[in-house]
């Protein structure tokens, strides 16, 4: 493939970790500035997409075998999100109630606030990231096996 030159390969290899760090930063920063789980998931997903373009499906999976588990990631994100949304119903609050309630103290670790909204956003992040990577995997793997045949 034309994308796979020495330049693109080196650059994509260099930017992979920074992309993931940026994604996590966007996810965490969402409670003080612009950012949320969805955009974090898209950023991290784009990081993987660039790798895919530069290395092709087979080499990508050889480099990061854990990418095969992406559907599990999406699934756990969905489950986590549902649990966060429906759990308040168990003790009688409306669906999607977030804790601590307004006016109550939020426990902090440095600037990171422990709020159930963070949990929900993490779920969205997992879902989006897992979804992007698994779609890529479905199309990419089949494409890879076809390429081997022809």
């Amino acid at each position: 493939m034309s994308m796979s030159t020495i330049l693109t390969r080196t650059i994509t290899r260099l930017i992979f970790l920074p992309t993931l760090v940026t994604a996590v930063a966007v996810l965490v920063k969402g409670y003080a500035g612009a950012g949320d789980g969805f955009s974090a998931g898209v950023i991290a997903g784009t990081g993987v997409v660039i790798q895919f373009l530069a290395f092709g499906p087979r080499e990508l999976v050889a480099r990061y075998p854990s990418l095969r588990r992406a559907p599990l990631l999406a699934w756990s994100g969905l489950l986590l999100g549902l649990v966060t949304a429906f759990a308040p119903v168990i003790w009688g609050d409306p669906i999607m109630t977030l804790y601590p309630r307004p006016g109550e103290d939020v426990p902090h670790l440095g600037l990171l606030a422990f709020h159930t909204a963070v949990l929900f956003d993490a779920a969205v992040f997992l879902l989006v990231f897992g979804f992007i990577v698994s779609v890529l995997g479905t199309i990419g793997n089949r494409y890879g096996s076809e390429g081997a045949d022809s």
Partner: peptide, 20 residues
């Protein structure tokens, strides 16, 4: 946008399946 993103992914997957 999120919903559109999801449906477009499904559409592309379906087109790919039709293609194969």
């Amino acid at each position: 946008i999120v919903i559109g993103f999801g449906t477009v992914a499904v559409l592309l997957g379906m087109i790919y399946r039709t293609y194969t």
